[in-house]
Design a protein around this nucleic acid. Sequence first.
DNA 1: ATACTTTTGTGATTTTTTTCACATAAAAAA
DNA 2: TTTTTTATGTGAAAAAAATCACAAAAGTAT
Lengths: 203, 203
Amino acid sequence: MKTSKQSILRLFQYRDFLIRLKNINTVNVFSDNLAKDIGTTSIQVRKDFSLFRLSGNKKAGYKVSNLLKQLDELLGKNKKQKVVIVGAGNIGKALMQYDGFYKEGLEIAALFDYDRRKYNHKNNPPVLPIEDLFKFVSSNNVKIGIIAVPCKAAQQVLDLMISAGIKGAMNFAPIPLKSPKNFYINNINLRVELESVVYYTQM
Amino acid sequence: MKTSKQSILRLFQYRDFLIRLKNINTVNVFSDNLAKDIGTTSIQVRKDFSLFRLSGNKKAGYKVSNLLKQLDELLGKNKKQKVVIVGAGNIGKALMQYDGFYKEGLEIAALFDYDRRKYNHKNNPPVLPIEDLFKFVSSNNVKIGIIAVPCKAAQQVLDLMISAGIKGAMNFAPIPLKSPKNFYINNINLRVELESVVYYTQM
DNA sequence: ATACTTTTGTGATTTTTTTCACATAAAAAA
DNA sequence: TTTTTTATGTGAAAAAAATCACAAAAGTAT
């Protein structure tokens, strides 16, 4: 099958919209509606679906619940995934408190920090000492990590995650990290993102 | 000139690395070093430079300070840019406290919120009532905004920003927003980013 | 029942982005 | 000095992604 990174990202966005539609009891949706919502064209939407063998009904569009079910299957959204966050600063806390994750099968299982003043074993999720990460990750079979620590600690945190058995991470430290080929890392550099807004605004 | 969105984003990343190199007094850099750092190839780096007429020295690579100067010019990093954040929650505060912006000519001029308990006129940057946004933006000539409010308020905030004269925004609300063609909006959907990590980890 | 309209689905085409291949220059070595 | 080695720079080629063009199906109108 000929897939692409771009279309997979869009599938997640379509799914997001479909969930919103389902919540307001919308039954049918057209490729054009999906396109408008995520800011692309209906041709792109249908092409994406075509690549993944997702089909609708001529003239009648797509059934929201049906399409959603197929996307869930395709994107592996039927299994719950545990996630750990390292760094209980503002970004870590923002992600911890974001209740949208849980609905999407993403469970923030725990936060970890170097600063003992931030420990909170009774919170849900708990904030634990970084020393506990290795044990927690292996005994809870966690595969996903989020790095929300300052630059200088980021590589060290990633190495620890890898050694503990984590397979993919989202990194907020604005510095590229080294990881093995079979490890997937998604670098989110908010400064660069903001800088690019400035750039395009000046165009 | 044949440019591309992708290469512009990379130029910002190269620049990031060059700043780090300059800070440790590195004088020369090779395309291969730049490539390794941002996770691409040296061919890509040279191609990017070629597109923007950035040149180095055969066999001796590039002069860090010289390249940085050229990138600053190219990316419009010589002018200071004021930025306002709407939403003084965790994400808003995380961005406010991130001191990396200031060094990059990005000044968080003020935060705005609907919740009066969050107001703090004496803080730097101040946290002001949303009602003050229009006046603040127009009198301070702010062109960039950051939307860090819940979904339901996001479109309203964007409309307000647009009416006040803001030209580009970074949006953290996980819902696509409508804006005119001449407005640049960078949607950051952290949930989708995390979901894609999970997806690629399962591959 | 037939024509018309709307929407999906996809091969073909175009555009964009990345990679290749190699000419060219400069430094280092012989 | 001449050769070799190591980088850059870029047109050409390949790959990836987006768009086009149009067939096909299904609903609506006549």
